[in-house]
Design a binder for these strands. Structure first.
Length: 822
RNA sequence: GGGAUGGUGGUGGAAUAGGCAGACACAGCAGACUUAAAAUCUGCAGCCCGAAAGGGCGUCCGGGUUCGACUCCCGGCCAUCCCACCA
């Protein structure tokens, strides 16, 4: 009679017991070393599928391993609960976004528990609760008071579909990261966080993060985009004003044949007053044609357009007059919105000059070429200067220094550093977010809401289907008194980008119920940094950059001790596909958690997710794949079931009279060794651990006998501990059936024992001239001479040597002997 | 255009201080059990030659280093991801 493992009641039983006994609570003090394992907190969008489960299963396996290796493990879970999907659902269906969110949290919490995860639920948080966003507002005001939050009028990215502005990081290929609509450009007064003040540290400190994937660090480096160069002032002819340009190629300054200026540049208004009416009209027409065009359209999609302003600037060194052009290819928000046009040495300038028949000059020649050929296009490499007054014949690098010095002496320029990174726009013209705690007073200006009056509560939303409803339209919310002078004033009606909340939630987990501070500084002193952070690579320049910025600010305020980086090690899990595509409702290829738990059990699901591929790789869900893991669990059950009553709890290695028994003990310890190695090296390739578990179970199946050998019983006793981090329910059930009263998850993981891992006999591979010619069984630890003797006794080896003299031999102990013959 | 990562059987993958390529699993084939099927257990399985012993070829392609290369170096091809008119 074959027995099946009845997963459904057993999984339910243990989940209930773990919860009742608070098995995974992490105390804030412990004699054990701490370990903070965290997965990126989810947005409560509704239903989880097995793709989400992959992320949580990896994190849970790591947390469980570290717990069983003797650490006080903090493994928390929460909800990134503000945001657009809730509000859009509210608009579509006329419901309350708070209710929609709460309902989703309830369902997803149930599903995450259903996966058998080991979270400390006493620390659960949801960012939409006033207890949380109160501290969001408090932190905003701290930034405000330190000059790191400010409101300014600026061209910003506007998503016409979501009806809100977006941060730069949230514009992907010119489109809204959420709804993929083309982003427009608008001039609006908006709240920014001065992340650029930290640009240098955010860049330099990437070196402190060897535990991060290299590609993520590279992406942040690219995003911050530090360029060293110089600012140069060009005086506008017949106008008491200058245009400052930023350049990394000061050595090409004698090649300037025009200035290229963005139409938003402030100088344009002044220029319009001194040029002819027809020129001014052309300027206006050009600016109007670009007004609402997004940066993407202006730069990538459009050809290089421009219009001559009619004005000229004076070259600071050559004193020549260079025409000032307005162009679409100069970014208003970078490098001052103006560049020097050097068609001889810049692809973009060359392209523009060609299109508008502007002259080009070559002032750099390739080094070492006596008589350089005329070039087809611009020469963009470094070289030697020509036609550059006294700087001629200098190298590019040398000339950059010398010209900068000269400009400084003239008061016409200075060395300078530019960043691609721009300040983080956090205003959102949406309802479902944290209200920005600022009051606008005609007399006092921008006034912070006093800390004692926080939180500024989000008022209930008018539930009108099909209509958006913002704080701006809510007069009762908007109208208030100025906290400073008591006069009539208006509240800020923008809400915060939800990335604000997620930039510090990992600190709130440490002290989630504190109502006098966002956290007690003693908590991070013990728990920080996050030892292992696990989440998707799509956040490489969003959440992960913002969090680093916040944490540096907290560090500077003395609110967190130690490092000024929050995440010690970062791991990006790979996607889980089905039929070669990402799971989505619209494709109809979603594999749900509930149906999988019901059909296969969550232990099988967890094993499958860990087993298909290494965790960082893209993997594919297959029904055949998971049935293989169901099969494994059944085999585990059958291998142990006959021995529940007789196994006992002896932990010491039994004597092993036969090689098969010795091999069985070895298989046990190989699983332990793999699990521990994969955890401590942070590779998390538990796919190889589970493969060794397969081998162990194969060996146990082969070793079944009546009566069972001491080696088999040892394996039966060890198995629940070995599988506990990966298949926690069956592990617990086996453990209990073997007579234990306490949870297997409180046990120490099996310590690999060299006596069990060692082998008595090895396979000596014998090569002749590098080709394998024999495999000979030999005692472990065999010496080179004995190995040679064994090899020479082999007929096939002798045949290949064919009497030739042995010129050389290479011996790798217990592995290989390579005999090299003439 | 710049950068990152990768390319191994029918499939997912294993092998990293340079030392047996293909562990383990899925799918497949054969056998045992069964009236039968399912389930389970056992066995086979990179390609080619061979009855077998054994041999030749083989980790994207072409070179190189080495006694020995999936692994290291040079060149190329392909795939995925990221950045991209950032002056």
């Amino acid at each position: 009679m074959l027995h099946m493992y009845e997963f459904a009641p057993i999984e339910r039983k243990w989940q209930e017991r773990w919860e009742r006994e608070h098995l995974y609570r992490a105390p804030n003090e412990s004699a054990k070393p701490k370990y903070y394992a965290m997965e990126m907190l989810p947005y409560p969008s509704g239903d989880l599928h097995v793709g989400h489960a992959k992320n949580y299963t990896i994190g849970d396996a790591v947390a469980r391993m570290m717990r069983m290796l003797g650490h006080n493990v903090l493994h928390p879970m929460g909800w990134d609960a503000f945001g657009l999907p809730a509000e859009n659902a509210a608009i579509d269906r006329g419901i309350d976004p708070a209710a929609w969110t709460t309902e989703n949290i309830l369902n997803m919490r149930r599903q995450i528990r259903l996966m058998g995860t080991s979270y400390d639920w006493s620390r659960e948080l949801a960012t939409c609760e006033p207890e949380y966003y109160r501290w969001n507002q408090w932190l905003f005001l701290q930034l405000f008071q330190h000059g790191l939050a400010y409101k300014r009028h600026a061209p910003v990215n506007w998503c016409p579909h979501d009806q809100t502005v977006l941060a730069n990081e949230q514009v992907v290929d010119g489109r809204c990261w959420r709804c993929a609509h083309l982003v427009e450009r608008r001039n609006l007064s908006q709240w920014f966080l001065r992340i650029t003040a930290y640009a240098d540290r955010l860049l330099a400190d990437l070196e402190k993060l060897p535990g991060w994937p290299e590609r993520t660090r590279t992406m942040q480096r690219n995003w911050i985009g530090r360029s060293e160069g110089a600012n140069v002032a060009f005086v506008v002819d017949s106008l008491d004003a200058t245009i400052e340009v930023f350049t990394t190629r000061l050595d090409t300054i004698y090649g300037v044949t025009f200035l290229a200026v963005a139409p938003e540049h402030p100088i344009v208004e002044s220029i319009k007053r001194v040029v002819s009416p027809s020129d001014a009209a052309a300027i206006d027409a050009f600016a109007a044609s670009l007004k609402s065009k997004s940066e993407l359209e202006r730069t990538s999609l459009m050809e290089k357009q421009g219009v001559f302003t009619g004005a000229y600037a004076i070259h600071p060194l050559s004193r020549e007059r260079v025409p000032i052009w307005l162009t679409n290819y100069v970014l208003a928000e970078y490098g001052g919105g103006a560049v020097m046009g050097v068609p001889g040495h810049d692809e973009r300038d060359a392209d523009f000059a060609k299109r508008h028949a502007l002259p080009s000059a070559q002032v750099i020649v390739p080094p070492g070429e006596v008589d350089p050929e005329p070039l087809a296009g611009p020469y963009v490499e470094d070289g030697l200067l020509v036609a550059s007054d006294e700087f001629s014949e200098m190298s590019s690098a040398h000339a950059r220094e010398a010209i900068a010095e000269r400009l400084v002496a003239m008061g016409a320029g200075a060395k300078s550093v530019s960043y691609k990174l721009r300040d983080w726009l956090i205003s959102r013209q949406r309802y479902w977010g944290t209200p920005i705690p600022i009051v606008h007073c005609a007399a006092c200006g921008e006034v912070a809401v006093p800390a004692g009056e926080l939180p500024v509560l989000l008022p209930p939303r008018e539930h009108v289907a099909g209509r958006s409803s913002t704080l701006a339209s809510n007069a009762a919310f908007r109208e208030t008194q100025c906290p400073a002078c008591g006069g009539p004033a208006e509240r800020e009606t923008d809400t915060m980008d939800t990335f604000f909340e997620s930039s510090w939630y990992y600190l709130r987990y440490l002290d989630p119920h504190n109502d006098t501070a966002p956290w007690d500084p003693r908590r991070p002193a013990y728990w920080m940094n996050v030892d292992q952070y696990i989440g998707g690579a799509e956040h490489a320049v969003l959440h992960l950059l913002y969090s680093r910025f916040f944490y540096k600010f907290f560090h500077d305020q003395g609110w967190v001790a130690g490092s000024d980086e929050p995440f010690e090690r970062l791991f990006h899990q790979g996607l889980l596909l089905r039929d070669g595509e990402k799971m989505s409702k619209s494709r109809g290829n979603v594999v749900g958690i509930d149906e999988t738990a019901e059909r296969n059990g969550v232990d099988a699901m967890r094993l499958f997710l860990l087993y298909v591929t290494p965790p960082e790789e893209t993997s594919s869900w297959t029904d055949d794949g998971i049935s293989g893991r169901v099969r494994l669990l059944n085999r585990i059950w059958r291998a142990c079931e006959p021995h529940f009553e007789v196994a006992g709890d002896e932990r010491t290695l039994p004597p092993t009279p036969t090689p098969a028994e010795k091999a069985l003990l070895r298989a046990v310890h190989l699983v332990a060794k793999s699990a521990i190695d994969e955890t401590l090296t942070r590779r998390f390739h538990y796919n190889t651990t589970i493969a060794k578990l397969d081998e162990l179970v194969n060996a146990m199946t082969a070793a079944s006998a009546t009566p069972p050998s001491p080696a088999l019983l040892y394996a039966v006793r060890a198995l629940p501990i070995l599988i506990a981090p990966f298949a926690p329910h069956i592990a617990e059930e086996l453990w209990e059936r073997l007579g234990h009263q306490t949870s297997v998850h409180l046990e120490r993981y099996l310590e690999p024992d060299d006596r069990a891992l060692s082998v008595d006999e090895i396979t000596l591979v014998v090569q002749v001239n590098g080709k394998v010619r024999a495999r000979i069984a030999a005692p472990a630890g065999i010496g080179e001479e004995d190995a040679m003797e064994l090899a020479m006794a082999d007929a096939n080896v002798r045949a290949y040597l064919n009497g030739k003299a042995v010129r050389k031999r290479i011996y790798v102990a217990d592995k290989l002997l390579n005999v090299v013959a003439a």
